[in-house]
Amino acid sequence: MSRRKWPLIPAIALGVAIAWAALAPMPESPRREQPFVIPEGTWARRMSGDQVDILPQQIRLTLGVNDVLFLKNLDTVPQTFGPALLMPGQSFRLPFELASEYQFACSAHSSGQMTVIVDPYPASPWGRLRWRTLNLVEAFGNKTHEPKS
């Protein structure tokens, strides 16, 4: 292959990736849960001065894919987790049926608020491409789940 054609390879690979992202079927999960778990020892870590951020200030869900927020407290003390006060070992399972932006009062965040954005099911190729791009950005994005100032 001549050197002139080398740049074509990444362009073709990108094209294939975009085509896959737009046309591949959406992942299916019977429970459709987006889980967040408080591990045992979280309270002790907070008491010792560690900043422990488990629940993002903004959570993005998608109808038909992961439209159930699932929170579980595995710590040994009660914890305010998003909008719910959870006893040790208790879980909270909140389903969403409408695409919208939901605000919850949440004392676990410095702003006192938590936002859940529920996107519609990405039925069109453009919608799937957007959904996969957002997921990719989130996967490499804000690891602490707290907004950047």
Partner: peptide, 12 residues
């Protein structure tokens, strides 16, 4: 049966 509200499990 599933509820539309957020469910606590186990309930207290």
């Amino acid at each position: 049966p599933a509820l539309k509200a957020g469910v606590f499990e186990p309930p207290r």
